[in-house]
Design a protein around this nucleic acid. Structure first.
Lengths: 101, 101
DNA sequence: AATATATTTAGCTAAATATCTAAATGAGTC
DNA sequence: GACTCATTTAGATATTTAGCTAAATATATT
C-alpha cells in the first residue's frame, strides 16, 4: 500500500499510468513522452513494477508495459473505503427519477 | 496531488488520518499512539498539513488536529475517476432485479 | 560474427526525508 | 514573574530519491 502511494506521488509516474490506460506500450515509446533521460524513466518503471501497478512482457527487443488497473483499483478504492468513501450509492438515473420500492 | 499521495505513502501518516476519522485529536494524544518521538510526529503532522489533509485549531496549550475528509475524497476519488474507477453504477438492487428502461 | 537497437545497470551528485536530542516558543498556573 | 506542559524548531546524521552519463546486456539484423 505504501509502495502504491509512493509510486503515485510522482507526476511522471502518474502520467505513465495514464498513458497505459489506452493500452500496452513499450518502454521506449513511453519514455519518448517525457523530457527526462531513458535511464531515469527506467527507474520510474521499476518503481511502478515494485508497486505492482504494471506488468511487463518481453517482445523481441522491446519491453511492453501493461497497466494493472485492478491493482490500482484495489489500492485506491480499498483505502478510500476505510474512510467510508467511494461506496455511496450515486444515482445515475435522470434527475428526479427514482427506483421505486 | 503529489503532496497528497506523498503524505499517504507513509503508514504512520495514514494511521494518523484513520485516528482522526473518529474525531479531532490533539498533537500529543495523536503522538502517544506512535512509537517515535514527538518531534518526529510533529514533522509528520507538517506533511499532512502541507497536503491540506488536516486542519489545526489552537486550543489552550494544545493543537487540535481535524481530518479534512473532503480533501482526501476529492484527491482520491478525483484521481480514481481519471481511470474510470469508482463511479461504476454498482447495483444495490436484489439479485436478478433491474431498473427497467 | 559484427552491428544496431532497446532497455537496464552502475556509479555519481544533489536534494529530500525520517529520525534523533536539545533548545525554543506559547499558553496556562502558582 | 517563575514554572510547567504542549508543541514546534534547530541542528545533526543516515537513508532514499531523482536525475545525469557511461557502460553493460539482450535481441535482431546484416
Amino acid at each position: 500500500m505504501s509502495r502504491v502511494f509512493k509510486a503515485l506521488s510522482d507526476p511522471s509516474r502518474r502520467r505513465v499510468l495514464q498513458l497505459l490506460r489506452a493500452g500496452p506500450m513499450s518502454a521506449g515509446d513511453l519514455a519518448d513522452q517525457f523530457a527526462v533521460s531513458k535511464p531515469t524513466m527506467s527507474a520510474h518503471f521499476a518503481v511502478l513494477r515494485e508497486a505492482d501497478l504494471v506488468h511487463v512482457e518481453k517482445s523481441g527487443k522491446s519491453m511492453i508495459y501493461h497497466l494493472k488497473l485492478s491493482v490500482l483499483e484495489e489500492a485506491l478504492m480499498g483505502f478510500a473505503q476505510t474512510f467510508g468513501l467511494g461506496t455511496e450509492a450515486v444515482s445515475t438515473l435522470p434527475d428526479g427519477q427514482e427506483v421505486l420500492p
